[in-house]
């Protein structure tokens, strides 16, 4: 329990510091980058719930984000619902989609690469569908009106979105801490380590995995509302981009899979590396080459992720195997 309390204390201090940070940081650019870091960490944590804690890799995590974004944007645009209610619908839409995808795939016994690939297929399917539907605006996309105000989840200054992202991040970390300490979470780790043994011990693995993916879906849905209210435009390539699917697993694995702070550390470091290399290198391509090399160096020297640098909490767990595709 001591470890748990120290984590909670650490979180409380950390979030208090971050909450007052805008008072000290006058740079709107830094606030905007921090907002992006929190956002990526949040979406990475959603991936971590299923991929890190329950051991089910997904390559199509973006589908919850995109569906949530569409759900709230359509409500806002076509029905005049304020976004603060729209976000509830987005969470719901993400969770329902997750249940459908999860139930269909887990019931069929898909694991490892097979599960990862089916999520990719669902994301692609939704992208194609969103491109053809009337209600999503098809390929033209949806334009949202700029109307700052809390009820619209839009803000005049980057500070507002900073707090929005910070709250999302806090929620995601709270969920991860709760999972680490609950029976529910322990069962999920059991599934990750050895699914057949978990089943034999009487854990309803299908149910647990479906719950995990629903948490991921709900979190992704809220992220969609955040994005669409911040950037006010949504089209299928943005909503269902492979890039975001990759980014969420990237920050999580680089930071430390199956750990509370892995996604945040990964997001912080990778965003910083990206920004710094971009700042010093103008030639197109060169900065990302450096980024790729740094990425490979991190992976080869810290196979358990950056969290391995911080001895102690969370660093001990590793080796969530992706599975050998033996479905």
């Amino acid at each position: 329990m001591a470890a748990r309390n120290s984590t909670l204390l650490f979180c409380a201090i950390g979030f208090a510091a971050l909450a007052f940070a805008p008072l000290g940081i006058s740079s709107k650019f830094y606030l905007d980058i921090l907002t992006l870091i929190f956002f990526t960490a949040y979406i990475g944590q959603s991936w971590n719930i299923l991929g890190g804690y329950a051991g089910q890799f997904s390559f199509g995590g973006v589908m919850f984000f995109g569906t949530g974004a569409y759900a709230s944007s359509i409500l806002v645009n076509s029905f005049g619902v304020p976004a603060i209610i729209g976000v509830v619908a987005a969470v719901f839409a993400g969770a329902v989609l997750a249940l459908c995808v999860g139930y269909l795939s887990f019931r069929s016994g898909l694991r490892g690469s097979y599960f990862a690939l089916i999520t990719l297929a669902f994301a692609e399917l939704l992208r194609v569908v969103a491109n053809s539907l009337e209600i999503t605006g098809g390929g033209v996309g949806l334009f949202l009106t700029y109307a700052p105000g809390l009820q619209n989840l839009q803000f005049k200054t980057p500070v507002g979105f900073y707090y929005f992202a910070l709250i999302l991040l806090a929620i995601s970390i709270a969920i991860a801490i709760w999972l680490e300490n609950s029976r529910f979470g322990a069962q999920r780790v059991a599934i990750r380590e050895n699914e057949d043994a978990a089943e034999a011990l009487g854990i309803n693995t299908l149910r647990r995995k479906c719950q995990a993916i629903m948490i991921m879906g709900a979190m992704g849905g809220a992220a969609g509302t955040f994005y669409s209210q911040k950037y006010l435009y949504l089209d299928p390539p943005i909503a269902y981009s492979v890039h975001l699917s990759v980014e969420m697993l990237l920050v999580t694995i680089v930071g430390g899979m199956g750990t509370v702070f892995g996604p945040l550390i990964g997001s912080l470091v990778l965003h910083t590396v990206n920004e710094v290399t971009r700042n010093f290198i103008d030639t197109p391509g060169l900065s990302l080459i450096v980024y790729g090399i740094i990425l490979i160096i991190i992976i080869s020297y810290l196979p358990n992720g950056l969290i391995g640098l911080f001895k102690g909490r969370g660093a001990k767990k590793t080796d969530a195997r992706q599975g050998d595709g033996d479905a």
Binding site: K28, F29, D32, Y231, Y233
Partner: peptide, 15 residues
Amino acid sequence: TKPEIGAAEVEKMNE
């Protein structure tokens, strides 16, 4: 090619 990065560049350049 990303809207969010484009917007962040505006913030950076404003600074």
